[in-house]
Write a protein that binds this DNA or RNA. Structure first.
Lengths: 161, 161
DNA sequence: AAAACCGCTTGCAAAATGCAAGTTAAAAAT
DNA sequence: ATTTTTAACTTGCATTTTGCAAGCGGTTTT
């Protein structure tokens, strides 16, 4: 995929230009589980060292993770999620939920989430911050800020071809 | 990435084994915007034809989209999201939101969402279905169904190394 | 001082990608 | 009725990306 492509000036595309790789998401998943060290990422994911260092570089260069030398051992480097990185949690959660629902092996979800705040098992749902109702694809309309037609970006809104 | 890898029996990893590619997500984005035809996906994304047909094949083989011949023109094939595919909406939405927030070009979000149900601009948030509060990474605890330690999967839960 | 360990880098073979050209079947135009 | 156009691919090939193995340079332990 060419980096210079505009992709209809869309935030999904922008995210994918940074995170469009399986390994990146898997590293993030590990990070959300609390993993912080190179060798642990490597061991848990079975990822090749060159790929791992490349991906960690991408994540740090994009401000999603940050490097920190371990105060107890100067050889070790901590990789930690930044605020920007922590903000990716809903993406990982929604992925997990879809996998739980549609890629089940018949034994139920591999991982259970517990919501410490309320003490119950977490079932996350996407809600409208205004009305509080769950969000569904068919309830949403789109408007592009530059007036582009969503279905045919070559045609400006309101103008007929 | 090797397909046979288990990846700690995680739903995120399972999803990524199917959807671990930029193009797949971009095709899905188009589909959620209402795009249904091969030539429109091609034109809107600027994707090579062999890649597009390959990705559409992956999506249909995995039950995320389905092919349907157009009743008005037997040459044309409609690609539509299945229920399983529509269920990926929260993933796309959370991606969009993160991009809006962290990859802003200073002009605000490229795309505005309007919630038809309540008539207001949509700002989706992840909530706990039980207590209704927004979900944050630090409020969640994990338990693996097979007792695996999240940080070190080689160690069973409760056992010290 | 020697050995072990951590986080890489390098070399190279294999796979994935992107472009252009060709193919098949249906529909529209002549 | 025949030719032309259109839609959705497929194929060939050069370029790029990936993945494995081996090596390397600091830091800590022995």
């Amino acid at each position: 995929m060419k980096k210079e492509t505009d992709f209809r000036n869309c935030s999904v595309a922008r995210l994918l230009m940074v995170l469009g790789d399986r390994w990146l998401f898997l590293i993030l998943r590990e990070a959300f589980f609390g993993v912080r060290y190179y060798d642990r990422f490597k061991a848990n994911l079975g990822i090749a060292t060159n790929i791992l260092s490349d991906r960690l570089k991408i994540l740090t260069e994009n401000g999603i993770m940050e490097k920190r030398t371990d105060p107890d051992d100067a050889r070790r480097i901590q990789y930690r999620l930044t605020v920007k990185g922590l903000d990716l949690y809903p993406v990982i959660l929604t992925m997990m939920q879809w996998g739980d629902k549609w890629l089940d092996d018949g034994q139920g979800p591999p991982l259970m989430l517990h919501h410490k705040t309320c003490g119950h098992r977490l079932k996350p749902i996407m809600c409208c911050s205004h009305c509080g109702k769950p969000v569904q694809a068919q309830d949403i309309e789109y408007t592009h800020r530059d007036g582009t037609d969503m279905l045919n970006p070559a045609v400006a809104a309101g103008k007929k071809k």
